[in-house]
Simulated assay, not measured.
Amino acid sequence: MAGLPAVIAAGEPLAYAALRIGYGVTLVTHGIPKLLGLPHGSMADPMAGSVRLIDTALGLPFAAQIGAAVAILEGIGGALLAAGLATRPLAFAFALQMVGICVALGPTYPWIDRGIEYPVILGLIGIALATRGGGRFSLDRRLFRAA
């Protein structure tokens, strides 16, 4: 089994890139429907659903503007994150977004059955990406020599 640690070590940068890319693409699939006014899953109008959640569940002012910022963050920021560009600030922003989603959904859907387990894990991935950076196979590293 002496070769297994070497295989794991060699594969780690690819696995980390796959995690970052998968995370970014997942977020893009939530942002693009909002930006383009397309249905998403069971939501006929995901932008309206986001704005309603921001307004009623979180009680924040400027819900429409915050909803637009979230859609841009998910749609464009998710694509940039998948490419590994501005990884740390974008991943941190996504982690904060997931905290907001947990606060908004937690009282209604605490766990399982449409619960907050997915925003919790997405938030934790965001924290991991924010603290570690884009990794070896990222535009951050290629352009700025930053991991």
Rank of each mutant, 00 (worst) to 15 (best):
79 A>W: 00
93 A>W: 12
80 L>A: 06
34 K>M: 03
42 S>A: 15
112 I>F: 13
114 R>F: 04
40 H>K: 14
130 A>D: 03
97 Q>D: 03
46 P>H: 01
97 Q>L: 15
142 R>H: 09
76 I>M: 02
98 M>K: 04
14 L>H: 03
54 I>P: 05
6 A>M: 08
33 P>F: 11
77 G>T: 07
15 A>T: 08
71 A>R: 12
104 A>M: 10
65 Q>I: 10
19 L>F: 03
60 L>T: 06
61 P>R: 03
116 I>L: 09
53 L>E: 12
133 G>H: 08
74 E>M: 15
121 I>K: 05
23 Y>V: 11
45 D>Y: 00
35 L>H: 06
70 V>E: 00
95 A>F: 12
138 S>M: 06
68 A>Y: 13
123 G>D: 03
131 T>P: 05
58 L>T: 09
77 G>N: 08
15 A>K: 07
68 A>V: 12
140 D>G: 08
71 A>T: 06
106 G>D: 08
36 L>D: 00
40 H>D: 01
79 A>S: 08
102 C>M: 15
86 A>G: 14
135 G>L: 04
28 V>Q: 00
42 S>N: 14
132 R>D: 05
35 L>T: 02
30 H>S: 00
41 G>S: 01
36 L>W: 10
53 L>R: 11
118 Y>K: 06
116 I>E: 01
13 P>A: 13
16 Y>G: 09
74 E>S: 15
10 A>Y: 12
54 I>H: 02
134 G>M: 05
8 I>G: 05
71 A>N: 06
140 D>T: 09
34 K>A: 05
34 K>R: 13
113 D>V: 11
90 L>H: 14
56 T>E: 15
117 E>Y: 10
38 L>S: 01
32 I>L: 15
111 W>V: 05
67 G>V: 02
120 V>I: 13
69 A>P: 03
70 V>K: 15
147 A>S: 15
126 G>T: 14
22 G>F: 02
88 R>V: 09
6 A>V: 13
76 I>D: 06
12 E>H: 14
118 Y>D: 07
147 A>C: 08
108 T>C: 03
62 F>K: 03
71 A>Q: 09
50 S>I: 15
46 P>Q: 04
89 P>I: 07
121 I>F: 02
37 G>K: 07
80 L>D: 06
118 Y>R: 06
11 G>C: 15
85 L>R: 08
21 I>H: 02
78 G>F: 12
98 M>S: 04
143 L>E: 10
139 L>C: 00
117 E>D: 15
20 R>E: 10
94 F>A: 08
8 I>H: 13
138 S>E: 01
75 G>F: 01
66 I>N: 11
24 G>D: 00
102 C>Q: 11
106 G>K: 11
111 W>N: 11
44 A>Q: 12
139 L>V: 07
126 G>R: 05
100 G>C: 10
145 R>F: 14
24 G>P: 11
82 A>Q: 11
112 I>W: 13
95 A>Q: 12
49 G>A: 13
94 F>L: 01
33 P>K: 13
76 I>F: 01
